[in-house]
Design a binder for these strands. Structure first.
Lengths: 125, 125
DNA sequence: ATCACACTACTAATGAAATAGTACTAACGC
DNA sequence: GCGTTAGTACTATTTCATTAGTAGTGTGAT
């Protein structure tokens, strides 16, 4: 019935972001990093990392005491798939529609927003 | 523990897209529209629309026989929030990082991709 | 008036995502 | 050698998203 998430779920992404930043990590490394932001159990992180391994996002090698995990796919590829999924789902594949919204982001300067708007017009040609 | 979805879930979005397209609708209108694509129960659509009303995305007026639902928030605003959530979650708020990925979308022409890349450089200044 | 039909309200079931506990194992320090 | 600590495997639980069923109500047609 309900389809499993086609890319990374929010929590899976949070964990992958830590790992992409740190490179090769143990469960403990990720656990410590996440705990700086919020409370989470060690075993929760472990479970998530096992799932990520099952899904092919992580590979592990048995080193010394604990397993060492590292990304199995480059960040660009995974995030690119997430962008694609988002554009398809929300904008039916029309990237330019997404740009229109980015142009409204008020964390950008007026100048930057104008540059994006200019680009949108160009893409429509 | 688990946080509810901050914006629209995939199925909620699918329904809102129909309603934004059709304007004011009954449950049946949406049901018929969705059924053209896939099998779904009438009551399923009704439940989703009730949830969307609870969440403040739809308002209903009692007309004739069935309720008539219409969008409570403009499409631009809702989709804009989804974009913001996505950019925050995936790119820590950096819109330009998103642009880099859009520039790789091979549904665009080489010319369009170059234009986006040019914009990315401008944004970084 | 009553039957059929459409709609609603309420409730239920299922599945996935997220969180975490418990029992077991291995290594390290002393 | 043995206890303490860190790690793992397995399992359980909870919540949210999604899907749908059932009973009840009201209206229109005949």
């Amino acid at each position: 019935m309900r389809r499993p998430h086609p890319t990374l779920t929010p929590q899976e992404l949070a964990i992958m972001k830590v790992i992409w930043r740190l490179g090769s990590v143990t469960v403990r490394d990720v656990y410590e990093d996440l705990r700086a932001e919020r409370t989470i159990a060690y075993t929760t992180v472990m479970t998530m990392m096992r799932i990520l391994e099952d899904k092919g996002y992580l590979k592990k090698t048995s080193a010394d005491r604990a397993f060492v995990y590292s990304p199995a796919k480059p960040r660009q590829q995974v995030v690119g798939a997430m962008v694609q999924d988002f554009v398809d789902r929300v904008f039916d594949g029309a990237s330019s529609s997404l740009l229109v919204h980015l142009a409204k982001d008020n964390r950008l300067t007026a100048k930057q927003r104008q540059a994006i708007e200019k680009l949108v017009k160009e893409l429509e040609d």
